[in-house]
Structures are given as structure tokens and as C-alpha cells.
Simulated scan of single mutants.
Amino acid sequence: MPERNVEFGKFGARGARGSDLVARRLDELAGGIATPITVQRGLMARLRYLTRTGHARQAAKDAGLTVTDRTLKAWLDGRRSPSKKNLERIDAAYRRVRRQNVARHLLGRLNRQGRGTRVEFHPLNQSGVARPHQRVVEFRSMNVRRWDRIVESWAAGDHASLDTAWTDGILPDLGSQWGAYEYCTSVGFAA
């Protein structure tokens, strides 16, 4: 059984952790506001999303957006603009609250009543690796039926738990060469 990669890229291979690619794909599936936060429209849309209900306001505070109601009202009215640091906090809070709101729906779509979702693994880029050190890796696909831990970790923003759920829970199903897919150029799936 292969172990986790310790020195990825030592011989020139390029790619990203599969769990990071999964998190990016889940973010894409979750959708959200496309306008950047640096534009007034994007800022207002995020602020409205974070303040429309009491539950959303509490989730925003839990996510790190700790400003007074007076400041928040001034931002919404356009009388004041948030600092760069507060823009980052607003965007991070928005992403976290959006993930929490979408997670249950996304989990149902990915699990599909036990049928699961087809996942494609595109292998790492070995163009910079000397021939004797190259692995034989190829495009693989498999059906993933257990998304609960992955989506739960993603919604909480817990990257270590997501990596463990992906690497120890899903990749071994690829067979004896699962270690070759810990890093990939892309991981694709739809929901």
C-alpha cells in the first residue's frame, strides 16, 4: 500500500493536492456572487447576503465579521467604505456562510440517494521529471458514494479534515496505486 507523498515535486512533478482541487470544485458548484468585492455592486451584494436575516448576521459574526451595527448600516447606506482588511473579512465571511447554506443541498446532489457521483482524476504533470523517475499514471474515473465527511469539512473550512477525508477515505478505492493520485492536475465532477 503506498504512503502519502512526503516530498512532492522533488523531481519536477507539478500538480495540486487532490483535496484542494475538490474544495475548489465544491466552491464552483456552490456558486455565489461573481462580481468582485472591490466593486461597489459586489460589496453591496455580499453585505445584503450577510445581513438579510438574524441567522445570517449571527453566522457572519461567527465567521469573523465583528463590526458594530452602526458601521454595517453606514456601509450599506454607502456613507462609509470598509478598509482593505474589512473587505477581506467580509469576503471570507461571505464564503463561509455561503458554504454552510449550500452544503446540505450540495450533499444531496452529490450522494444522489446512494448512487454517488462520477469523479475524474487527471494525473499530475510529469513533463519536468527525468524519464527514469516518471510514474506510469493515467486518467482515472470512479464513482464516489460517500461525500458526507468531505462536504462537512469543506463547509466548515477545515482543510486538514478535508484532506484526510479525501486521501484516506476516497483515494484507496482507486486500488494499489492510489498514492499516485494524491496530487493531480485536476479533479472533476458535477452535481
Rank of each mutant, 00 (worst) to 15 (best):
V137G: 06
L76G: 11
R17C: 01
N125A: 12
L21W: 00
L26Q: 05
I37V: 12
D77T: 05
R46E: 07
M142D: 15
T53Q: 11
T68G: 13
Q113K: 09
K73N: 10
I33L: 05
Y94G: 04
L87D: 11
K84Q: 15
R96W: 00
Q58Y: 02
A74D: 14
R118H: 12
I33P: 04
P123I: 08
G18Y: 00
A63Q: 08
E120G: 07
L110G: 12
A130W: 05
N86R: 00
R89L: 14
G42K: 07
A74L: 12
A13M: 05
R41S: 03
A16V: 06
V97H: 00
V129A: 07
H133W: 02
R104S: 13
R25M: 08
R95P: 14
L76T: 09
R89W: 02
G116Y: 11
A93S: 04
R140Y: 08
R98D: 00
G64L: 10
R89V: 04
S127I: 09
V137M: 11
N86P: 02
I37C: 04
R112F: 00
L47A: 11
L50N: 04
E138R: 10
Q126G: 09
R24I: 12
Q100L: 09
V119Q: 03
V137D: 14
R24G: 15
A30Y: 07
D77Q: 14
R24E: 15
V97P: 06
K85I: 15
P82H: 12
D20V: 10
F121P: 09
R48P: 00
Q58F: 04
R112S: 07
L107R: 02
R95E: 15
V102L: 06
K61H: 11
Q126V: 12
G42I: 02
S141C: 15
L106W: 01
E28L: 06
R115F: 09
S19H: 09
A30C: 12
M44V: 13
L50K: 01
G31M: 05
E138S: 12
P36S: 10
R57P: 01
V137Y: 04
D20W: 06
T68P: 05
R140V: 14
V129F: 00
D20T: 07
K85C: 12
G78P: 07
K85T: 15
Q100F: 08
V67G: 13
L87K: 11
L50W: 01
T38K: 00
Q134S: 03
R89A: 13
G116Q: 04
Y94I: 08
H133C: 07
Q134T: 10
E120Y: 05
R135L: 13
G32I: 03
L43Q: 10
P82Y: 09
N101W: 02
L21C: 03
T51E: 11
V137I: 05
G12C: 09
I33R: 03
G12M: 04
R41Q: 06
R57M: 05
L43C: 10
R112Q: 14
L29Y: 03
L110T: 10
L21G: 08
Q100N: 06
R80V: 13
R14C: 13
I33Q: 06
G116M: 09
M142F: 00
G31W: 07
V67N: 01
R118P: 09
Y49H: 11
W75T: 03
S81I: 10
T51Y: 00
